[in-house]
Write a protein that binds this DNA or RNA. Structure first.
Lengths: 370, 370
DNA sequence: CTGTTAGCGCCTTCAG
DNA sequence: CTGAAGGCGCTAACAG
């Protein structure tokens, strides 16, 4: 495999000149042309490994996610990628599969490969350990939640306000017994969303106490069971908020199997997926700005490469309530959309100047063939 | 950042000894312990970049897919990963986003990083060029279709027999005008599946000529429109085969909007996704062995690392028809499943010995929170 | 079993 | 603008 010495010899120049042609140093155009011709001729491909060793850094950043099957991550990945590519970085995805051990391996690889940075959705708050990366100067940005091992830049969605808005909407529609199907108590996301749900009840007019809460497992089956149990109550709920899309699917199936059809029972869910609009009636959802989260995370990472010692930031991006038929008792014609958070991202007081410019999501490409 | 010289000095040994401890050479246990202690002490992390340069190969393989949002790929990725990890290789995912240019960039990176191998779902038959990789000794395995630029190991699903079986099933159920909604003529997958559909008609009893075929775009909207147009015909079909899951979703929506409910109109689709079982009635699907395809691809890759000059193989893995309510006129109680291909993978005549052992899919983990 | 030595391919001073 | 030379960190020969 040809290297720069071969190219140099073929072009009649020094290896340094070849390197300069490759990296944009000043070379006379005549010699540059000779070098390019020789490189082409020899099928020369610069060896990034050698370059990485010499430069002590790579141009690849790792995105470690906990479940590749979750549509949230696919959008997130696009956001990271688009920003990274604009800065000539490649992104590789690592699927940790919700397994702290796998995740640790990938963190290890990222460090051993001296990657340009890591965006991580931590599999576990307690077990995910990014200190090694940080100690060795590899920037880390956490998405959605912050590992306990260290304070790092974090980007999250404003889940609490999202849950609040959805619950408030259900109450406003006239549902009187709004229940919540949420995730395990160990999940911070589950708890944050639940908090928003409860706050909406407290702040309602009149305030309502002790709304029904079912703890499930963020999965379809768990949603189904939780919904079934709720419906078996003496006073079953007339509306439900599911804190992720899989449990929502389960809840819908449970309703269907009992002949209950939204919006007879109101349904709202966290997480917009392509089937949210396909079910009939379409599903009211709290949309998480996954793409923007990815963008923001990548931007934080890029920024931190240049200012490694700044105080870690915490960005909170607004969620958005998409009202559809599943929660609309009143027969309005059009779907409506509403921001659920203040228009500007909330920034930790330490650094207010660093507002990450996250624009609109790029239009979602429809998926392709299977 | 500590290197092996630092560790060697701290442990009072030579760098070579440190290297041996790292890579399993023979070292006296006493010295090995000293080395490990020193490494721990210094927070030493072996530099894979340097190792890669020295060894002229990396332990990372790339999986380049054309659309991260497609569930087919997520299962595929798991298959690749599980096999690779068993051989101590890491897998990184590269999302080419159906864009030949992006894809070319990732191929470039894979070559420049001297990756251990590449599994690729080619974005384009014509534009995807893997010759550079091959020339430089990086093994490549194509999934689902083979790029024109070179002959490489390929793993595909037996789509034709899958389509045949699904169509045959619809005919056997007594549907008389079975239509097909397939993808663009430029897509080989669309054409292969269509071929199976047509064959089932020719071989039916009695053979039926000129079944209705609609060409759409593999997307939800296209499926909706195609179904609508079919229903507008003077003699509308009483059953339909959609050649991917997104068009199936569109077709179901179109049926729903006209008050038609499967199995009144029979529906079968390519590609099993988690919602296939959630819709009511559940959807009859041709299941593609995505996980096994990934496994087989990784195995071929590993094998080729050791035998680079063997004739390229072509593996065809069986699909499987999962009959559910959407196509069952007769009121049987239980869903049924059937292999649609011969039990053994079909192998190109050049190398019959190389049957890849692909076992059962590991149980699908339900997804987690969004 | 252990140490010495010589690169892997590239980039980046430093001289010219 | 150009070339010579050293070294990034590691491993594989080779000697001992």
């Amino acid at each position: 495999m040809a290297n720069i010495y071969d190219v140099a010899k073929a072009a009649g120049v020094s290896p340094a000149t070849v390197s300069r042609v490759l990296n944009g140093g000043s070379v006379s155009s005549e010699r540059a042309a000779r070098v390019r011709a020789a490189a082409e001729q020899l099928g020369f491909r610069p060896n990034r490994v050698a370059r990485g060793l010499r430069r002590q850094r790579s141009d690849v950043l790792a995105l470690i996610i906990s479940d590749i099957e979750n549509p949230f991550f696919t959008a997130l990945a696009r956001g990271v990628e688009d920003v990274a590519r604009a800065s000539n970085l490649s992104v590789v995805l690592c699927n940790a599969d919700d397994d702290p051990e796998k995740e640790a391996e990938y963190l290890d690889v990222a460090l051993a490969e001296r990657m340009a940075g890591v965006v991580i959705f931590p599999a576990s708050l307690a077990e995910t350990d990014v200190t090694a990366l940080l100690e060795h100067g590899v920037p880390v940005v956490a998405v959605d939640r912050s590992p306990e091992s260290a304070t790092v830049d974090t980007v999250t969605a404003d889940d609490e306000n999202g849950a609040y808005a959805a619950t408030r909407h259900l109450l406003d529609e006239g549902y009187r017994r709004v229940a919540c199907i949420t995730g395990p108590r160990a999940s911070s996301a589950a708890m944050v969303r639940l908090r928003g749900f409860l706050r909406a009840h407290r702040e309602g007019e009149p305030p309502r106490r002790r709304p029904r809460v079912a703890y499930a497992d963020f999965r379809v089956r768990g949603g189904y069971q939780a919904m079934s149990e709720l419906l078996d109550l003496a006073e079953p709920p007339d509306a439900v908020l599911a804190t992720n899309n899989l449990m929502a699917a389960g809840a819908l199936a449970a309703l269907h199997d009992r002949g209950l059809r939204p919006p007879e029972v109101g349904v709202a869910a966290f997480g917009d997926t392509f089937w949210s609009q396909l079910v009939r009636p379409a599903l009211t959802t709290v949309q998480q700005p996954a793409y923007e989260i990815g963008q923001a995370a990548a931007e934080l990472l890029l920024k931190r490469r240049h200012t490694p010692d700044n105080e870690p930031q915490r960005l909170v991006l607004p969620t958005r309530l998409q009202v559809r038929g599943s929660s609309r008792r009143s027969a309005e014609a059009e779907p409506t959309t509403a921001e659920t958070s203040p228009p500007l991202p909330t920034i930790a007081p330490t650094d207010r100047a660093g507002a990450t410019g996250h624009g609109l999501a790029r239009p979602r490409r429809p998926g392709v063939m299977t």
